[in-house]
Amino acid sequence: MTTMTLNAGEAGPAEDQTANPASESAVEQSAVKARAANTNIEVTGTVGSPFCDDAKLSMRNVNVFYGEAQAIHDVSLDIGRNQVVAMIGPSGCGKSTFLRSLNRMNDTIEGCRVEGELTLDGEAIYGPKVDVVPLRARVGMVFQKPNPFPKSIYDNVAYGPKIHGIASRRAELDEIVENSLRRAGLWNEVKDRLDKPGTGLSGGQQQRLCIARAIAVSPEVILMDEPCSALDPIATARIEELIDELRQNYTIAIVTHSMQQAARVSQRTAYFHLGKLVEVNDTETVFTNPEHELTEAYITGRFG
């Protein structure tokens, strides 16, 4: 069934989401190291303005380890309320790892350890008494590859509300599904076939379905891990519009490979390099007048 959804133009990029990010980053980091060695630039700290006043999420001195290997080095960053923050950088730089540590998705990877202070509205994310279940309902996530469940479109969106017991009546659930699909801009396309399998949609529609699924549990933050990397340009444009609309109600952190995308959708941009946060600034500043020479080298395409 999945074969139907991938049109020729939507063939995925070379880099696939790997089941084990640890080995992926290990391999790629060494490649990046080799390239970075040519530039001979030492990253000492973060330049620019990593902090902001009205922070929804705030991270201080975050270190992430996969077993022995350290994937994130001492990263501090704020993500402001109703703001879109883009995270860019060469592959293997740790931006996805960092993103996954924001809603503790890294817990599912054996041997992964997160240190530092991470708070959501001032509450610790990694506190000893924190329950990941409501946490993940508050911090939703959209993945690189569209991953609708092999269920109907309706059931895909209704899944979250059902397991959390958000809707008390069937009518309420219907309403949540409709609202979520509307917000994800998918309602008009699928309203007549809600009982058809979600895997039968096109790639772009699947990704919007995943976004609808995520917003159906009314999250406060949505994390997006390269949400358009498996999509064709038209579907990508549609998602980017959607992200801009969603900003009204949600705080969004998006990892992207595409600098153009970061420039189009985000207010602030963070540049990661070899597990370190090199520079954070207003998006415009990063792309027009970067402070750090590595950032400049990256956005001008000298590596990446």
């Binding site: 329950d131 409501p134 959390h164 017991g165 958000i166 549990v217």
Partner: peptide
Amino acid sequence: QVRERIAARL
């Protein structure tokens, strides 16, 4: 409301 309902079932 949503938060409350989630918490109730936890």
